[in-house]
Amino acid sequence: MNTLILKTTSRFLFTLLLLLSVFLLLRGHNEPGGGFIGALVAVGAYALFALAHGVSAARKLLPLPPLRLVGWGLLVALLSALPALLLGRPLMTGQWFSLLGVKLGTPILFDIGVYLTVFGALLSAIFGLEEAAHHPSEDA
């Protein structure tokens, strides 16, 4: 599938899709969107890149191995649940504060955690399948 057209366009689409995914993540604050759908778009970006340039090239664009990202995502989500507990409220009660006029809170942190978790989990599945398809002997 490594045609010239796909290789060239995938570079542009990769950036665009990643931007769109971050946009969707932040939009989920008040409107349809959120961590899950944003992560799906980001996975789409990486999957497209992996199709065009190979899995190892796509892996190089990741800061961490995908499964490690799942761990960090879960950690971020867990951290978003804890402040309420420390303040004596039930777990996961939303805590809000303002920073330079922007209303921030623990739900956005939770969304980022969801984003990382879904991203890492799906990507590891897709990379695993792609690599197994190209080197079947490794898994047998």
Binding site: G71, L74, L78
Partner: peptide, 10 residues
Amino acid sequence: PLTTGILCLV
């Protein structure tokens, strides 16, 4: 268990 699981992943 959640914290333990996460730390084991990280």
